[in-house]
Write a protein that binds this DNA or RNA. Structure first.
Length: 584
RNA sequence: GGACCCAUAGCUCAGUUGGAUAGAGCACGACAUUCCUAAUGUCGGGGUCAGUGGUUCGAGUCCACUUGGGUUCACCA
């Protein structure tokens, strides 16, 4: 149950009554009416703009309309008081019993509290990582990977049918380079001295085992063979090996994607030709010459007639090439084919998670998706800004040569998957992020991962101690559902329950806005409220969770602690972070 | 030069899709430990929301322009 959604629907019923009584017009616009918690909690628990939104339409002053609504709101059992403030806000304070009901709902629903069905089973495709299969993942991939994975979980949580997808760019020149690099390592594995890896090849040590495996499988048959004979086979073999590395890296971060879609397979299946035909049929392709970029003309620029897609007809700044000057397809062409493929597989909602360096690519992809699906697919491209790796305030220089922490795996080994996942969501995706190796492992208030984990561990600690004091007390949520909760009447306790009550709304908001970082922020807020209540017990012993010689009150408090634990666990599950019961 | 993102407290950043007196952490100052894990908490000072104009009952939020920073810029992926 979402308490905000409930009040919202109660409010709409009231408005309908007023409409039936001819006070409000029948065609009133209710879509802009909101029920949310006010910034300042002294205004009450909830606040609505209904009177201000409808006033003009009803031909009334906002405050006059508000008073009619307030009268009816106050008749509701869940409402303690309602009032009018400012230009026409309706402020609502809920009955204490309503908050007890919320707490009971958390216990009754358990892990399902906060989940919803607003997605209605609609198919959503979340594409993330999609690193070129030319080596292991590095830290630059970490943010988008976590972002996409958590966004997918969020959407699942609110009832969408979600696919987690990886697009493999296993076609094009970079995989040819990869195959040549593998051939070099293959010769090396057979005893040849290959010296320094020449520039233009992938130099990484991770290619050495590939060379050995090739040597084992094929012996020396391709040592002196011309490239045309071995390229295709070694390329396939090496891409498979690279994808195995990538999957291992993803697994280390707790990521398991459903689909791995091959660009090469799309091209081989003629999908790019189909796209070309489809766009041609819509008169969206022509042969033209692009202008050089203003103010930064490349030295080797020369006018080139190319086949161009009319991206400008769909909001892009210039038309974009589908074929290179040699007539072969651009990456963009196969990317259009890929997005059409997603749409044809039944996904009406598409989400792409890209790095900041691809920001300039967004408009053309949106334009192309609009064109090729005739507006049928809704594409949202989420750009993750760069992560700066720091060590105690000092930036770490990224260098592939000296390379400390170049790879994602190294980062996970150093600080752990849970820390990486959580910290990547402590900023909006559109803001740059500092990842400080020292600070993220500190056990202090500054470190949000620790802070939230500590709150969760404290919940378990409190429940353990409660059973020590009252051995007959069960801390299982199902036993706690029937607890007598009316003893929870302190404002600090109610404040904590109110934060719990906001959880379903937080999940829904984060999912619909495609902003997973809101979950991390919510968890910090809930943890702060919980730590605060805990510490209040120091000054005011009557607020402690364990009340001597009072099993009933203790049980009510434990019910609250269990509810906090349940919601933190749900939140951490969405983030893919393990909720710990004890800290070491 | 164009495009995209950013600009909020000394620092790092949130800001519930346009609501009321703009929030948190750090830092700074004061305070609380015979007390469920002090690994925490409470209180306080600190703001021209980069600037100008516009849209309306109402703008940190939307629009235009200006300034400053980041990313990116024919055919690469």
């Amino acid at each position: 149950m979402n308490i905000f959604a409930r009040l919202h629907s109660d409010l709409l019923s009231i408005l309908n009554e007023l409409s039936a009584a001819k006070i409000l017009p029948p065609d009133m616009r209710t879509d802009r009416i909101s029920v949310e918690s006010p910034r300042d909690s002294t205004f009450g628990d909830m606040s609505s703009n209904a009177a201000m939104v409808l006033a003009k339409n009803a031909g009334m002053k906002p405050r006059d309309l508000a008073s009619l609504i307030v009268e009816k709101l106050e008749a509701l059992p869940v409402v303690a008081t309602a009032g009018i403030a400012g230009p026409g806000f309706i402020n609502i304070t809920l009955a204490t019993s309503a908050w007890h009901d919320v707490l009971q709902t958390v216990l009754a629903e358990g892990p399902k509290f906060g989940a919803s069905t607003i997605g209605a089973g609609e198919k959503v495709n979340v594409e993330y990582v999609s690193a070129n299969p030319t080596g292991p993942l590095h830290i630059g991939h970490a943010r988008g990977t976590v972002f996409g994975d958590v966004l997918a979980s969020l959407l699942e949580n609110v009832g969408y049918d979600v696919a987690r997808e990886y697009y493999m760019n296993d076609a094009g020149t970079q995989v040819d380079v990869l195959a040549r690099s593998a051939h070099l390592r293959y010769r090396e594995a057979l005893g040849e001295d290959i010296g320094e890896i020449p520039s233009g090849f992938y130099p990484g040590d991770y290619m050495i085992p590939v060379g050995r495996a090739l040597a084992e499988k094929f012996g020396d048959k391709w040592v002196n063979a011309p490239e045309s004979e071995w390229l295709a086979e070694i390329q396939g073999f090496t891409v498979d090996a690279m994808m195995a590395l990538v999957r291992d890296d993803l697994a280390a971060l707790g990521v398991n994607q459903d689909n791995f879609v091959s660009e090469k397979a799309l091209v081989a299946a003629g999908k790019v030709e189909s796209v070309h035909a489809a766009l041609t049929a819509r008169d969206l392709i022509y042969t033209g010459v692009l202008e050089p970029p203003k103010g930064k003309k490349p030295d080797d620029w020369e006018p080139r007639p190319q086949e161009l897609f009319r991206a400008t007809a769909f909001g892009d700044d210039v038309d974009r090439p589908l074929r290179k000057s040699d007539g072969s397809w651009t990456y963009f062409a196969s990317d259009i084919a890929y997005h059409l493929d997603k749409f044809e597989r039944g996904y009406g909602k598409l989400i792409d998670v890209w790095g900041a360096d691809h920001g300039g690519y967004v408009k053309r992809m949106e334009a192309a998706t609009k064109a090729i699906t005739d507006g049928g697919a809704a594409l949202d491209v989420k750009i993750c800004q760069i992560v700066k790796l720091m060590d105690d305030g000092e930036p770490i220089k990224m260098s592939k040569r000296t390379g400390t922490f170049v790879t994602l795996r190294d980062l996970v080994d150093e600080v752990g998957k849970d820390v990486v996942r959580f910290i990547m969501l402590t900023r909006s995706n559109e803001a740059p992020l500092d990842f400080d190796l020292k600070k993220v492992t500190e056990q202090s208030r500054e470190n949000p991962v620790f802070y939230v984990q500590y709150a969760h561990a404290r919940c378990h600690s409190a429940m353990r101690l409660a059973t020590d004091a009252f051995p007959e007390l069960s801390t299982e949520r199902k036993s706690l559902v029937t607890s007598e909760l009316t003893v929870l009447d302190d404002s600090a306790e109610l404040a904590l329950i109110k934060v719990l009550g906001a959880w379903p709304r937080a999940v829904e908001g984060a999912a619909l806005a495609h902003e997973p970082h809101r979950i991390a922020y919510y968890l910090q807020e809930l943890s702060a409220e919980f730590h605060g209540l805990w510490t209040k017990g120091r000054e005011r012993p009557e607020l402690r969770f364990i009340v001597e010689n009072n099993a009933g009150k203790t049980q009510a408090r434990v019910a609250l602690v269990r509810a906090v634990q349940i919601v933190i666990e749900s939140g951490l599950n969405i983030l893919g972070v393990e909720p710990v019961k004890e800290l070491r």
